[in-house]
């Protein structure tokens, strides 16, 4: 699984970071980027899906 954050959609809620801090980095405005190249280790896939489902802006997607 591989994920990405659309920087145009992200509005800085940081919910992804709250749900899966291993997978997202957050700047001071709450704007999110994926850690590394966005590849998700198998044990974190459930959390990645949770982050995708809980983004209020639909800014995260599974691009694998």
């Amino acid at each position: 699984m591989k994920i990405r954050v659309d920087p145009d959609r992200c509005q800085g809620h940081a919910r992804c970071f709250g749900l899966a801090p291993e997978l997202f980095e957050i700047d001071d405005y709450g704007l999110s980027t994926v850690v590394g190249d966005g590849r998700v280790p198998p044990e974190l896939e459930e959390r990645a899906r949770l982050a995708i489902a809980n983004c209020p802006e639909y800014a995260i997607d599974d691009c694998s």
């Binding site: 800085g12 970071f17 709250g18 749900l19 957050i26 001071d28 405005y29 709450g30």
Partner: peptide, 12 residues
């Protein structure tokens, strides 16, 4: 207020 990162660290 402008504290998304710290706030979400409190979520757990």
């Amino acid at each position: 207020f402008h504290k998304a990162r710290s706030l979400m660290r409190l979520r757990p």
